[in-house]
Design a protein around this nucleic acid. Sequence first.
DNA 1: CCCTTGGCGCCACTCAGTGGCAGATTAGCC
DNA 2: GGCTAATCTGCCACTGAGTGGCGCCAAGGG
Lengths: 224, 224
Amino acid sequence: MTDAERALPLRERKKLRTRQALADTALRLFLDKGFHETTLDELVDAVEVSKRTFFRMYPSKEDVAMAAELELWDAHVAEAEARELHGPVLDFLRETLIAAVTGLGADWDRRFLATRGLIARTPALWDRSLLLSVTVQSRLVTDLEIKLGINSREDVRLRLLGELSLAAWRCAAKNWISGRGYQGPREPMRKLGQWKGPGGSAELIRRVEEAFDAIPDSLTLTAG
Amino acid sequence: MTDAERALPLRERKKLRTRQALADTALRLFLDKGFHETTLDELVDAVEVSKRTFFRMYPSKEDVAMAAELELWDAHVAEAEARELHGPVLDFLRETLIAAVTGLGADWDRRFLATRGLIARTPALWDRSLLLSVTVQSRLVTDLEIKLGINSREDVRLRLLGELSLAAWRCAAKNWISGRGYQGPREPMRKLGQWKGPGGSAELIRRVEEAFDAIPDSLTLTAG
DNA sequence: CCCTTGGCGCCACTCAGTGGCAGATTAGCC
DNA sequence: GGCTAATCTGCCACTGAGTGGCGCCAAGGG
């Protein structure tokens, strides 16, 4: 990151720094006071930029809270573009997702955990998070459709597969958070300590594997 | 409907009528001028109620545009509660969904088609529609989990199944609309004529069956 | 050193959505 | 039918997110 930063022109570096500052401060404020209880004016005052600048960086108040999640999806897309596609497509999606999670640093999973906790207790953010993931996944599938020469009007299989892989991710993320018993921002740091380090994303990856493994059996699920 | 209406107290009947009037007028205005180009004040003026009353009927501007879609989900939930659960759960979800579509009248599929057309060219409505469907489906799955004694923390299969069935629905609805070549509100009535009657929802049901049928094969989809 | 270009701050504005209160309308009861 | 109490509605003022426009300042390039 520092290398990439140095290579960028001064103007871009400044932009990136305010972007970062906005995301960090937003997460801090939202965790501290709650999402709806924090106004954009407060955030913008704290970072000392104008509201106009904020909207040049992020399209909405919701999006700035989910910067960590956006990083994940960017990584996922990058991973999918880099890797070459052969074998079962579901495995491809699974592996590129795992690779994305693995590739992001230890600092990321701290921020991501905090973000997910905030999302879990803020319906408006949950909504936006869902929407973001669906949008990204749809883009991903569209790319794959082109590569495979599939037309979703005639063959919906890939579309379904994409949704399924996203569903697995959502189950995994949900169980990851609820398994941690994260309830709110006022949880003592003692518990936060447990989450830190590689354990956080290692556990997340375990949950993802678990969810993907459950896919074949889910189809045949039968009631009494 | 008329029977049920007559049974209701006067106050409730009036309430229902304004609800209906709001939904009808909203759809007409949105189709005519576009969603963002129509303000709530205009809608509220046209129906001759106050803005305050509007928000007592619908939680948001988006929701009033999707009254027909809400009817579908209500029917789906009712169908799932009425029917008893045995055999493959995926079939249960599939059959209750089909039954819901079938059960709603010919007037419904006219309104639903118009609604979907509007949604297709209005991102904000597409977002809300997705959110609505996910919410309903999540409620449905939670109920089923209780009936089956499944804990989604340990067993994510049902959760995955719910998402998969919803995905099939979304593919079906999408292809149904795009297959009709619906582009905007200015399409001549000649084309609208083709959609009318049982053919509209019959085609929709065909698309749904098609999508559900594609599920087993989607898992094994493999690239070159 | 100057000129161009791209951000940025500031201001005024729109519009969705909310809270509060006064007035009307209905339901239930005598 | 008349009275009271519970609802519902309309009106008004207000918050806060998001946008458009313009002047300005700082950065890149010669």
